[in-house]
């Protein structure tokens, strides 16, 4: 097991190199660029100063040299400074990370707890009313573009009904609130973003759990469990549940990229002060160091999540033993 974990940890590095290389290539191949957006449009800036700036940021060097420079700095844990405000990239990410983690962890927990609940309930009464209603809802969940759902909910709950705040993480007067009020305020701000972030995943997980559970319930060992005289509840929630939830652990790892990808969109829609919005803003202004920093951290977190999911799977499934 230890050896396996080590191997997987080491494998993170080649994958990270691949991801950063591709990100790097894409942002540099995109038409436009830092200097064109921020200077060439401006008639007051002379071509001379543009060239000087390029030299300053090393943008005049060949691409592969730029990438290697970047890698050698990152190896020293130096992600550089933002082109826009000259602040260290790490600082910028560091202050945005908690908001993103908060939103995504709550969504993830919700997706799995509620998704598993719905899935199991649908499987136990397969074809029943609850199952049918859930099929329709999850079908909607799959097919609705979630950014559209987000806008719709914002209009309904934020503009028409005025029940929920539609942007940001806290209200203006947050600093002057009592601790209880602060928590309440945060929760209110969380409701819409969490719901929208979780909705698609919820649909997916609940259908997956349902089919996994239905499949398990048809197994021979479930018949054998009934034949031993075990009560139905024990058979379903002990004998069958463990078998059908094992593959779901792997999904936990697989759902991370989707969540991170979703963050870019939803954080921007809801003005959520997280990493996704930071990446979006940086992309608009061709702030290369920040884009690269966010991409690296996001990739690292995803890979780590996958690894944790795989290890958890190996720990709970007795049939899997890694060498």
């Amino acid at each position: 097991m230890g050896k396996y974990v080590l191997k997987r940890l080491l494998l993170i590095f080649p994958v990270l190199i691949g991801i950063t290389l591709i990100t790097f290539a894409i942002i540099h191949l995109t038409p436009g660029g830092y200097t064109s957006v921020n200077m060439q449009m401006n008639i007051k800036v002379s071509p001379d100063s543009v060239a000087r700036l390029k030299t300053l940021y090393g943008l005049d060097k060949p691409l592969h040299t730029q990438y290697l420079d970047w890698v050698s700095r990152v190896l020293r844990f130096d992600f550089g400074t933002s082109f826009i405000d000259q602040r260290p990239v790490m600082d910028k990410i560091y202050e945005r990370l908690p908001a993103t983690l908060l939103l995504n962890l709550i969504s993830l927990v919700l997706i799995f707890i509620v998704g598993i609940g719905i899935g199991v309930a649908s499987a136990v009464k397969n074809g029943g009313t609850f199952d049918k209603v859930m099929s329709v809802i999850t079908f909607i969940g799959y097919s609705l573009p979630s950014f559209w759902l987000a806008l719709l909910l914002m209009i309904l709950f934020g503009v028409v009904l005025r029940w929920l705040p539609v942007s940001g993480m806290v209200s203006l007067g947050f600093d002057y609130m009592s601790p209880m009020q602060k928590i309440g305020d945060l929760i209110l701000h969380l409701i819409l973003p969490v719901f929208v972030t979780a909705f698609g995943g919820l649909a997916y997980i609940s259908r997956y759990v349902k089919s996994s559970m239905v499949e398990t319930l048809s197994q021979y060992y479930i018949k054998a469990a009934y034949a031993k005289g075990m009560p139905e509840k024990t058979v379903i929630y002990k004998s069958a549940l463990k078998n059908s939830l094992l593959p779901v652990i792997t999904l936990l790892g697989l759902s991370l990229p989707g969540l991170i990808g979703g963050s870019f969109i939803f954080e921007t829609i809801f003005s959520w002060p997280g990493m996704g919005r930071l990446a979006y803003e940086s992309a608009l202004s061709f702030d290369y160091p920040v884009i690269m920093g966010v991409a690296t951290i996001a990739a690292f977190l995803t890979l780590l999540g996958n690894l944790i999911a795989d290890i958890a799977y190996a720990l709970v499934d007795p049939r899997i033993r890694y060498r």
């Binding site: 197994q219 021979y220 060992y221 018949k223 054998a224 469990a225 009934y226 034949a227 031993k228 005289g229 075990m230 024990t234 002990k238 004998s239 463990k242 078998n243 094992l246 709970v316 499934d317 007795p318 049939r319």
Partner: peptide, 30 residues
């Protein structure tokens, strides 16, 4: 009645034993 008055051994023991529980758990739960 099941298990207490009638015990049953199935055609394929490999498939009739639950793969993710130990022998101990499967005997003791009965």
């Amino acid at each position: 009645i099941r298990g207490k008055e009638i015990g049953i051994i199935f055609q394929e023991a490999g498939a009739a034993l639950n793969p993710v529980f130990t022998v101990k758990e499967q005997i003791e739960e009965t």
